[in-house]
Design a protein around this nucleic acid. Structure first.
Lengths: 127, 127
DNA sequence: CGGTATCCAGTAGGATACTG
DNA sequence: CAGTATCCTACTGGATACCG
């Protein structure tokens, strides 16, 4: 449970509280637009930096590197540098990354499936 | 496909391009920390505003109202006002909201399942 | 109790330029 | 080509105060 605070102050809770705060931290990391879109893009295949930039519509150079570092740090993405010139850097989802990707896929599917419902809800709301 | 730009400029594409940009807009709306945590919290049961505030650890009054309006506008959440005094306002997931909640559940599960992997990846990365 | 408005500090994030 | 650093604006989001 990410949303719930663990019960107060018993000494034995120390480990659980740490795990919970770690979970919340990770959740905050990945629950953002660019991270999820990058994961989704990498689901199909390994991509180089420049390919990712083209694939993830609207992402800036800065946001892309920033999120890639974060995903790498959390073990969701592997970064492979080919020491050629010019350099060639490839990003691949790790196992856990692939798992998460499946969930993101569901969200993407959900979005397209409910476009109509949402559009209606919006016009109803905006009046 | 949320991440891909649709193919350029053929007149027949107008509808598809509209759908795609709408999808991206919706995705940006819901792919944020607070929205997902609120959906997750409401998955268990209908909650009043103040209960939500307690349930979603760390959310501010402002962020909560803001995200609730957004979720209501997109038809993910129903808002029911009981005209008592003091007022009582209850929030419930709609059908589509419940569907999305299932996906968010998967992400929450994923997070807890891979805590170890992630922690290791982090210490490896941070050296 | 729940919602809205105001203020403002912190930061996210774009543009740009430079390195290997 | 990919990464890092710098600058600078715009917006996010918290605190506070006030209405119904």
């Amino acid at each position: 449970m990410v949303t719930k605070q663990l019960l107060k102050g018993l000494p034995e809770d120390a480990d659980l509280r740490r795990a919970d705060s770690l979970a919340r931290e990770i959740f905050s990391d990945i629950a953002n637009k660019w991270a999820l879109l990058i994961i989704e893009a990498l689901g199909e295949r390994t991509l180089r930096f420049s390919e990712l930039r083209a694939e993830v519509e609207g992402v800036s150079h800065k946001m892309l590197t920033q999120n890639l570092r974060m995903l790498e740090r959390n073990g969701l993405v592997d970064r492979e540098v080919h020491p050629t010139v010019p350099p060639r850097v490839e990003y691949t989802l790790t196992g856990p990354g692939q798992d998460l990707r499946a969930a993101v896929d569901v969200i993407c599917g959900w979005t397209h499936q409910h476009l109509g419902h949402i559009e209606n809800a919006r016009t109803r709301f905006d009046t």
